[in-house]
Amino acid sequence: MESARHVFRVLFLLLVVVVIFSVGRTFLVPKSYGAYGPYRFDNVAEQAAIRPPQHGGSASCGACHAERLKAVAAGAHRRVGCEVCHAPLARHVQDGARIAAMPVDRSFTLCARCHRRIEGRPAAFPQIVLAQHQGGVEGTACIDCHAPHSPKL
């Protein structure tokens, strides 16, 4: 049985390698790795909870500003969300409590982002050329004449 000693020696070596590998793998590979593919599945849940949603949508604004929301919904800006011109809900309300005033931008720049005539906009979209508009000067507030929440043309 001289050869058996060699067999056992090699088998022992193999066993040591397997044990080192499994122990090493347990420590080095994250728990959920490979659950659904070659990635760490736990990260999917982490991404889903990475931060609370910042934008609430116009409906969330309606919780306090129902009248305003109704007025907007009846006008030409009905498809423009409140947060487009103001700011994300999270800057105004957090956990149901008001934390800061909502920014109100009354500048020409805000309106111009959508309504200044520039190359690229669909022709049917209402746009103005400032020079041909009431002898307008850049910087003059559009909202002196147009109601921003329900503009009439």
Binding site: S22, V29, K31, Y33, G34, A35, D42, A45
Partner: peptide
Amino acid sequence: FLAGAPALGEGPVA
């Protein structure tokens, strides 16, 4: 076999 062994602990994403 060991490398391919599926990990446990699959729960809902959220």
